[in-house]
Structure formats: C-alpha cells, structure tokens
Amino acid sequence: MKRARTLLAALALGAAPLLAEATTAPTLPLTQQARKATVIVRATLGTPTRVTEEGVTWVVSPLTVSEVVAGDPATLPQREGQPALYVLAGLEGVPELRAGQEGFFLLYAGRMDSPFVGFSQGFYPIVNGKVTRPGPAAETAATSSTATTPETTTPTAPAATGTTTTGTAGTPPPATLPADPNAFPTDPAAFRDALRAARGGQ
C-alpha cells in the first residue's frame, strides 16, 4: 500500500544546524580579491553604531586607517569625517566586526549590502601580529602562530594543505602569493606586499 503524508519539515528544520556559510558567494583567490578591490587599507575598527538612512538601517564601523595599500580611502562612505564600513543591518554571513580589531580591508567603495570584496572574504584580521581569516580559523591561526618565527609564512586557509612556505630567519618574506590560491602570507608586511604585487605594483 502506498500512502503519502505531509511532514512539517520546516518545524524539524528549526533544530537543524545550518552550514557555516550563510550566503552564497563563490570563493575568490586573494589575488582576485586584490585586483577587484577599489580600496585596500590596513586599519582599525571603531565602535559600530546603527544608523538609519532613507529607511534602511546600517551597522556602521568607522575605520582608522594606518596604511593605504591601494586606492583612496576618501572614496569610501564617510561617517563623521572618517571612512567607514556600512554593512546592511540584519545581514547574515558577514564578518563579525569588533571595535579595536586591526586588519586588512579589501573593499568596494560604493554603498551596498556588504562592502567587502567577495561579500565576506575581503577582511583579514591581524591577531597577535599575524594576518588571519575571520572566525574560528583566525583564532586557530593566531594560536598556532605563536610557535612560528615572525618570518615564517604559513598558509592559514582551511584548503591550504601541504603548501607551507617557510622563510629563513632574517630573510624577508616573499612579496608574491603562495602557489595555493587560498593561502596567504601571515606576516603583515608580506601580506601587504603580496596585495600590491597582485595589483601589478599599484
């Protein structure tokens, strides 16, 4: 006997763990991110505030820029005379932005839901002097980085297996990106140089 029934799957789904990524955006290699970015800066995040403009609410985080890698930060949306990140309030899948967090920001200048290149990918926090990825991976990278010398260039992306590039103590890290497109230098100066190299020395 064949008998059909309807399950209220949505009710059951409420208890289901969602996948880590909450938004569909293809992964972009760092070189591509660097080329697509309008502005690349090393900066520190200020305290985020909620701002409603023309009926749309944004979470606005001011940026204190310490170094311009590419582009002009003045072209970014401004808040109280300072460049700022405008992220659409209620949006899932964007990096958690904490006041005081320093990092590299690869950004689009126009006003859109998320200013990060790759939607969420263009943010690389600097943790314990190392460039990381946001989220748990950043903590892992930060923890593991304590066992390496400052000159060691270590891929931190999950997919970066078996492609560690290690520099010699006292030797500057390479200015080019590792062969693995998902890997990147963790030394901030090397990371900056790699970004510039990806943009063709701009």
Binding site: T23, G90, L91, R111, M112, D113
Partner: peptide, 17 residues
C-alpha cells in the same frame, strides 16, 4: 532582487528585516 544594492560577488544573501 532587493531594495539595497547587492555586493557584486554575492549570488544570494540572507537577512532578517
């Protein structure tokens, strides 16, 4: 579509309004 412009790299976004 949506009222706020999309990041050009995103195919779909989830939000709570």
């Amino acid at each position: 579509g949506g009222t706020v412009p999309f990041n050009p790299d995103v195919a779909a976004r989830t939000l709570t309004l």
